[in-house]
Design a protein around this nucleic acid. Structure first.
Lengths: 261, 261
DNA sequence: ATACTCTGTTTATGAGTTACACAGATACGC
DNA sequence: GCGTATCTGTGTAACTCATAAACAGAGTAT
């Protein structure tokens, strides 16, 4: 179940209302010294510089020159702040010029999302749930994805499925990239490889061992060169496969039409 | 960069050594009252029952009838315990009978991974990084994935890419499912939908709005029936597309061979 | 003017990880 | 056998966090 999400009087999660600029600014009290924008901006700066774990209410408040508790006048919990950060970090342009060919369009779209994730990869550590889906940049992203798929003979549900799958692939590959990067490439020294080879034997893992030996699966000591063994190939491969799969589906649909409403 | 990972004298991360049963049991002191297995088991029980957030060193120790600090004789940090939990939760059988046809084999393989993830979905909240890759069940999974791809005309690097992409899809869809489930379906009441419709207009989001209106994208109030609107379709769609993409790639390779070593 | 409401602050609580020092248990070297 | 080094589980305590509660003052509506 999970704890309840703070909602406004419209029934929308507060984070959603804030992100869409729908929160009513109070009239009566003293004028405010802070704003959601400034708070979220400060939090993002910290996350960029020192990682999401360094984003504490105290750190954010301090960087703004306010006390910790003052933030709670703008945000009802840290979770809410994280949602606002996630949305703000994933900036997607409202207007996006997409190529006519759907393949190209999908590539451009995926690229835009990828750039957004990569520029603030900590945003992926914040759970994406029903709240995130209603946030402005998520909505913008979905709109563009559907635009790219416009001419494909798919049902609405299928189109939504496709953009979900693709954006998940993008998110997954960026996340992998990030995790490999910041767990600080565990270069296994020669002695470690020897120890492992006593449990990872060809008899127990007949398909894996040959691949490991021929490739750079385990980097024995040699510090993995970043640019060389990045996961761009993994991103490209996945996208290529998905697009090729869609082409096949398109072919099939053209021969065997389905009511796409 | 991230903090350093605790390693043994072989240079392997301690979690890896423990999981493979390579840690040397001390000789001299009093006999041990606990074991890694019992600790990890207790932690998993808690995670299953109350979620990963409920797994605190204190909770685990208490459920075993020991003090919090006693755990640190077995595990050098909470992070290490989490890695052990992740591996133990993702139990993959060492032997797995795969169909001859690679398409079927991939489906079976993906299904096995999916079942593992689903049975302890909190395991997905633990970052998968270079350490995870060396853990026994990860190695087992990779081995089976490569077995499924045995007959495809791909290079080793491509095969690794494919199993990465697929397992990422599986992980992503289970994670989505979990997040939707435990953020407790934010059913937006009618008033909220109305508020949203003032910012999510057909003019600003021409491709999205029609889809939303025709489908069940936003569930307005009506409590979403679990079984109905699950994300099985999303999982299936992604897997279908990837497999269709691989078929296309196979075709192309058979006509235009490449040295797959 | 007066009452109401909102501001930012101070203070305090409770949960969490983990360092450190201790008393006792156990096996190894002689 | 005996001492010694080593390992056990425990108690205490330091430190970091999120956040509840009460408060004094600022600004607006009546």
């Amino acid at each position: 179940m999970g704890d309840m999400v703070e909602t406004t009087d419209t029934g929308l999660p507060r984070a959603v209302a804030i992100a869409w600029g729908m929160e009513e600014v109070p009239q009566r009290g003293p004028s405010r010294g802070l704003s959601h924008e400034r708070i979220v901006g400060a939090a993002i700066e910290i996350a960029d510089a020192e990682g999401l774990a360094a984003v504490t209410m105290q750190a954010v408040a301090k960087s703004l020159g306010f006390t910790t508790m003052s933030l709670y006048r703008y945000v009802s919990s840290k979770e809410e702040l994280l949602w606002l950060m996630q949305d703000a970090a994933l900036a997607i342009p409202e207007k996006l010029k997409l190529p006519a060919d759907w393949r190209e369009a999908l590539r451009v779209w995926a690229g835009v999302i990828r750039v957004a994730y990569r520029s603030h990869s900590w945003a992926l550590d914040i759970p994406r749930g029903p709240v995130s889906v209603l946030m402005p940049n998520s909505v913008r992203g979905a709109n563009h994805g559907l635009a790219a798929l416009r001419d494909l003979p798919l049902t609405n549900d299928e189109k939504i499925g496709v953009i979900l799958v693709i954006s998940q692939h993008v998110a997954g590959s960026v996340e992998l990239e990030q995790n490999l990067a910041d767990q600080g490439v565990v270069a296994v020294p020669a002695e470690g490889v020897k120890a492992l080879s006593e449990v990872i034997t060809p008899e127990r893992f007949p398909h894996l061992v040959p691949v490991m030996e021929s490739g750079n699966y385990i980097a024995d000591d040699t510090p993995v060169i970043e640019s060389d063994h990045g996961i761009d190939p993994e991103y490209d491969l996945g996208l290529d496969l998905l697009i090729a799969g869609l082409e096949a589906m398109e072919q099939q649909r053209r021969q065997n039409p389905v009511d796409t409403e």
